[in-house]
Design a binder for these strands. Sequence first.
DNA 1: TATAAGCCATCAATATAATGAATACAAATC
DNA 2: GATTTGTATTCATTATATTGATGGCTTATA
Lengths: 300, 300
Amino acid sequence: MNFSQFQAFVALAEMGSFTEVANAINLTQSAVSHALTALESELGVTLLERNRKGVVALTNVGQVIIPHVRALLAQVEAIEQEAKAAQGRTMGKLRLGNTFCLSPGLLASVMTCFQQQYPDVELVLFEGTMNEVEEWIASSIIDVGFVPLPATGIDSTLITTDELQVVLAAGHHLHAQRAITLDDLNQENFIMPKNECSFRLMGMTGMEPSRIKASMRYQASDSATILAMVREGLGITLLPRMMLPAKLDGIVALPLDPPQHIEIGLGIKARAMASPVAKLFVQTTLAWAHRQAGLLVPVA
Amino acid sequence: MNFSQFQAFVALAEMGSFTEVANAINLTQSAVSHALTALESELGVTLLERNRKGVVALTNVGQVIIPHVRALLAQVEAIEQEAKAAQGRTMGKLRLGNTFCLSPGLLASVMTCFQQQYPDVELVLFEGTMNEVEEWIASSIIDVGFVPLPATGIDSTLITTDELQVVLAAGHHLHAQRAITLDDLNQENFIMPKNECSFRLMGMTGMEPSRIKASMRYQASDSATILAMVREGLGITLLPRMMLPAKLDGIVALPLDPPQHIEIGLGIKARAMASPVAKLFVQTTLAWAHRQAGLLVPVA
DNA sequence: TATAAGCCATCAATATAATGAATACAAATC
DNA sequence: GATTTGTATTCATTATATTGATGGCTTATA
């Protein structure tokens, strides 16, 4: 039982190929094979189902064990980072999760800001749905990630708030209203993102689950596509204000009545046990948010 | 960087002697010395201040790093336990924390019950103040521990509730009252346990901090001593009902007005990442509490 | 079905790291 | 200043991890 064995195990679970993993962690294929065999025989269990072609799947035990292994490796990283930090050097790896539904500009801006301050940190970006990002944090697949609040089972820090907007074509019959009520929405067809954010966003309006399903007319993965469809009058959509372009061309964005606010936070598994770099990222993002407040990000 | 190096580091921090640690983990003194030197040189920092006589103290870096190391080793234990569990074998080590102020009978009873069910689990008991137990859980020094709720920064499970009682001599002028008010208490002198529990318990009555300090007449470390002093009329005390003997000889226990309930929980660092044995302990304790409910433990 | 390519497990050999035994060295104690 | 106690260091040994070569199995392709 040693670190490279654990590292190999996690990498195998992710990549599914011994040869590939071998290249990735600078070992020979033989070494990787040995490593996993040794780990399995020491633990007395099979961790990965495999055939002559590669890794097929995690066994049940493997599934149970892998979060612990990831947590272990995260602590190793934290230890190395603390040691570097004590020498005045801020470096290490940071796995950062983002959700499509959150402002792409927010992420880019924060990342730039962070990288300028800490150029020696290796930022690895993961993208997934809100639920995925939260799960990834809980299972140590990533170190920090943007999540809508409240987040359950992980620590989180409020970064900024946003407001849910109803977006519709400039010529839409509701376009002149000051705000959109639930009754208004119940008459409309929706064009929404392809992931579960849709249900969450639409749920915030107070619409019935059955109505939500029924009124979801189109789903697209890209927000620009969605807005284009809205512009064509194919339906309306719901988006956080930050997701909208600066110039609303052919579309209008209206608040809900009552208005719905979204809290965007930075999630981390356990603040106390986090790596120095992860803590710095939270701090930096928070500072960034404060600088931006009132500028880009209208706080409720 | 390997497990025995980390193990040696933690053991050295706890025991302070290379030779002693060597015996404890079945290595030679030389090996332990090598291990720490190697770890330090790989991390590029000094972890332990030491002289020719032994370990003097943790360095600053050492203090920062050691919680991460403990968390890491806890994950190793969890991995081993999961592997055993997958083979149907429940075994491993469980470090359990208890507080003096909580019923000694509770602990003993739960431990017996647990050991009967899982004889292959090595239970290691740690005793400390409430705050210590909570800190120990947070820094992975122990796996689970009894804590008063609400506990901050750790996961916890409600086990049982208790009621704070005012204990006074049978001949005390308040002995015939049905309940004791804050006004009553403000006239009295107190005999309390020697640890911080005292302040917490007395704080629950609503007394002013200054009044608490002023009225604390004697402090003793043993509850039997405290009760003996109360019996002698040297003062009154506050204790959870469970701490009192079954037969109240020469003393009376009265509720507060308003009554103050104490919630006793089992704390664990992070349920999701806990070892199988730790999870079982929580379950077992909870089941035990349910069986006892209404019998020994009057629930509010 | 033959052939080639890709991939993993195995074996033996080698490199590397962990450990042990002996010893030197420092500090405290008498 | 001798003795005890305990750590660091040196060197030899042992254990472990890693490699390189090989063979077997699978899949793809003709």
